[in-house]
Design a protein around this nucleic acid. Sequence first.
RNA 1: GCGCCGCUAGCUCAACUGGCAGAGCAACUGACUCUUAAUCAGUAGGUUCAAGGUUCGAUUCCUUGGCGGCGUACCA
Length: 498
Amino acid sequence: MSEKIQKSEGGREREQRIEKLEQLRGMGVNPFRYSFERTHMLGEAIQNGGELAGSGAEVVCAGRIMSIRKHGKTAFGNIKDSTASLQFYVRKDGVDEESFDLFKLIDVGDIVGIYGTLFRTKTDELTVKVTRLELLSKAILPLPEKWHGLQDKEIRYRQRYVDLIVNDDVMKIFRLRSAIVETIRRFLQEHGFLEVETPILQPIYGGALARPFVTHHNTLDIDLYLRIADELYLKRLIVGGMERVFEFSKDFRNEGMDRSHNPEFTMLECYAAYWDYTRMMEFVEQLFARLCEEFVGGFELKFGEHEIDLKPPWRRLSFFDALGEATDEDLKEMDAETLKELAKKRGLDVDGVTGRGGFLDLLFSELVEPGLIQPTFITDYPVELSPLAKIHRGDASLVERFEPYICGFEIGNAFSELNDPIDQRERFEQQSRMRAEGADEVHPIDEDYVRALEYGMPPTGGLGVGIDRVVMLLTDSHSIRDVILFPQMRPEGGREKD
RNA sequence: GCGCCGCUAGCUCAACUGGCAGAGCAACUGACUCUUAAUCAGUAGGUUCAAGGUUCGAUUCCUUGGCGGCGUACCA
């Protein structure tokens, strides 16, 4: 059986390369070396190519062989490291005998070290003229085809390492992702936010409405939940006096998967004492202005066929005004039954939807969300949908909350945080009643969190940002799987059947 | 979860209405000391996702299953 697996992976070429390993060892070459000292990254060599090419100075580089063009006693090829790709040139009378013999056994995909000098070919291409070659790691599986590369999405996601080797634009997206996160981190630190780490294993899940993953701690013999959000912990830190905190949080939600949802994803949450949601809206605009400056070079962003203008101020539109625009009706005073009729009249599927909040949410996501292409803050949500947000200062049926939308994506969520412990307890209890009525994704009551509020939390503005979606926007990626290195997949070869 | 589409050599893809499973790249052998999708000559490479069915004959048609893509639902 295992023979079958081995055969199916790489086929005959893998066998041939394994034979080469033995030949190499016979020549006294260790095909898997321990280390190698470089003098130049390929990017540096290229950047300083002007001086280096004239000087005859030695460069020592390392990387993966990406192509080889042999012509008898000479050969050209390309070598790639994390900074660049560079052409190399090997000729029989230019290298020592050992290196030339070794080169005969080198394949595309192998990782080598090269010593040489830079020169320009007659087509003016900067090239390393190799004087010595050393094998650092042999590759026994062949790389995908050089011209079409790796197309198969399944292999690209499952074997991301191959995708990264051959698809430079994929590498670029993940470098960009790192830079985006770093820019956001720096921006927050510049504004006095402290980066913290809070539990991923939580005894009570909260801070969002979603089904959790459950695991078990053997010593304590208790079930623990992988966090669906870190909100309640960060606000405990506000109570503790940290005043401005943030965390890049891997969150886990046991829900469906699609173009914009992966079971584990990255959320930025940040909280600022003495801010309210209006101040937080400005902060979001400033943050995106910084991201635009660094990664867009202006405020105009292209996403698919959309041209987005991220220049602040963004449009502010209240939840009920947005619904009013979409329906030509005033939904604010409607009860659950009337909203249900309205949804039906609009041809929406109301199966499984309960409560006034449920119907409002349905109507909003069907009729309003898809149209929110230009950056828009949807503000002032109905209280039913927001158990952790503070009652609106001007209207007790609303909360002070906003969600920024871009390209129809909800990219964040923010409120003036509810800091009245009595109100918070009532909202939790209201959630419990909804659970009893059949809603399965509601907050369990977190007594310790309420106790923390009873010690007094300053007025606080809080914000959550979906980092994966921000990266999608800034890289014009249309699937979350293109911005997550190892997206969740079904097990290869199917599930074991019991 | 549901619907549609796909799965053929290491990779990218062909194969008409059911009739000997093919090409390019990669590999292997040989020629070639400035090539860059190197070139030229030759060789080899397949459980056509799996199991079952229909048929003289299945990559092709049918059933079930697996995996993937897209859409849809769920995910405030």
